[in-house]
């Protein structure tokens, strides 16, 4: 590849940077020697999303709802069973489109576990230089880029370049991981629980750094987290996932100010309040998410939804625009047959 200059915007600001439609990933589990009795985990089921240029799209949901699978599908660490992806107008992994490798040049990812995502045998400089060198950057330029990256993420190059991961703190390691994700000068950075493992003060520093880097390098973020406050702070739009499906998607003010889906409401009311008078005494939703091996028919949330009716078991609600956001709930669709829906 060439000398890794930043990739120019081509489609203009109105064209989504990344458009994924109908993404599906089912994992086969169990089964005998010949595949009998094999079941599938429906980790991600027909998910369609678009990421606009320069925005931060937050993705929230409980553990096991498929957030990380989405991240891995978007960067093609997992191959989707079905679905298409378009990066700034170029179809990915299709004739006349761009290759998976070109996608990975423009889309990078920061992982949650800062320790497991750094090779313990390599120095920080070696880790950071790996991707640029693999793309053919000469050693001298790669060395210069490593120094540049380290100073961008607030680590003094002379002090940290030759250290090993175990000699750094968790926050420093995560800064290195962010630097590595930036090494190829990507346009979209997927942050998969990137700050969740850090303690609060370090988390705040890293978040502020992410905000600064975004403007400085004109990046687009896909920010995956289970921490609703952090998502609110960082995101322009928020996507709420439940069992491999999108249940609600919209601007951050709409989702946090006027949640439409019962699941989103439950999630938001489960947030611990800073005000001691606003204590929640009852759990907003009962139980654990159902097994994704055999998800409920119709609406997947109906087994825990206080408003579930017959129609929810029969018909799967589709994502529909309601005012400022899109919601997948029968209660919000006029004439759906739900008693709370408008006639």
């Amino acid at each position: 590849m060439d000398s890794l200059v930043p990739i120019e915007d081509r489609g203009g600001p109105a064209q989504p940077l990344l458009l994924a439609s109908g993404l599906r990933k089912h994992f086969p589990v169990g089964g005998g020697l010949l595949g009998r009795g094999r079941k599938v985990v429906r980790a991600v089921d027909d998910l369609t999303l678009s990421v606009a240029k320069g925005e931060t799209l937050g993705v929230v949901g409980e553990s096991g709802c498929g957030k990380s699978t989405v991240a891995r599908l978007l960067i093609r660490l997992l191959k989707p069973d079905r679905g298409t992806m378009v990066l700034d107008g170029d179809p990915v992994d299709e004739p006349h489109g761009i290759t998976v490798n070109e996608l990975r040049r423009q889309v990078q990812m920061v992982f949650q576990d800062s320790y497991a995502s750094l090779n313990p045998r390599l120095t920080i400089a070696e880790t950071l230089a790996f991707a640029p060198k693999a793309h053919g950057l000469p050693a001298a330029e790669a060395r210069e880029r490593v120094r540049d990256l380290l100073s961008k993420v607030g680590l003094e190059p002379d002090t940290y370049a030759e250290r090993y991961p175990h000699e750094l703190s968790g926050g420093q390691r995560q800064r290195v991981n962010i630097a590595r994700a930036l090494a190829l000068r990507p346009r979209l950075v997927i942050l998969d629980e990137a700050v969740s493992a850090l303690d609060k003060s370090v988390e705040a520093q890293v978040l502020n750094m992410l905000v600064d880097l975004k403007t400085e390098l004109s990046l687009t973020y896909l920010f995956i987290s289970h921490d609703l406050n952090v998502v609110q702070y960082l995101s322009d739009r928020v996507l709420v996932m439940y069992l491999g499906k999108i249940v609600e998607l919209g601007p951050v003010e709409a989702i946090y100010g006027d949640p439409q889906h019962p699941y989103t409401r439950a999630l938001l009311s489960a947030r611990p309040s800073m005000d001691p008078r606003k204590r929640t005494h009852e759990a907003p939703i009962q139980g654990d998410p159902p097994n994704p091996i055999d998800p409920p028919s119709g609406c997947r949330f109906r087994t825990r939804c206080p408003f579930a009716e017959d129609v929810c078991a029969r018909v799967e609600p589709l994502l529909a625009e309601t005012g400022r956001q899109a919601v997948a709930c029968h209660m919000r669709v006029a004439g759906s047959g739900h008693s709370k829906a408008a006639a």
Binding site: R72, I75, L77, V100, N101, R104, R105, Q108, M109, F111, Q112, D113, A116, S117, L118, N119, L122, E126, T127, F130, A131, A134, H135, N177, R180, A183, L184
Partner: peptide, 22 residues
């Protein structure tokens, strides 16, 4: 299974390079 191998794959490096380095 470690994330650093995934990160290396995500960087678009070839399989042999990943095996050699990581």
């Amino acid at each position: 299974g470690f994330d650093f191998v995934d990160a290396a794959r995500a960087s678009g490096a070839g399989m042999l390079t990943i095996v050699r380095v990581h």
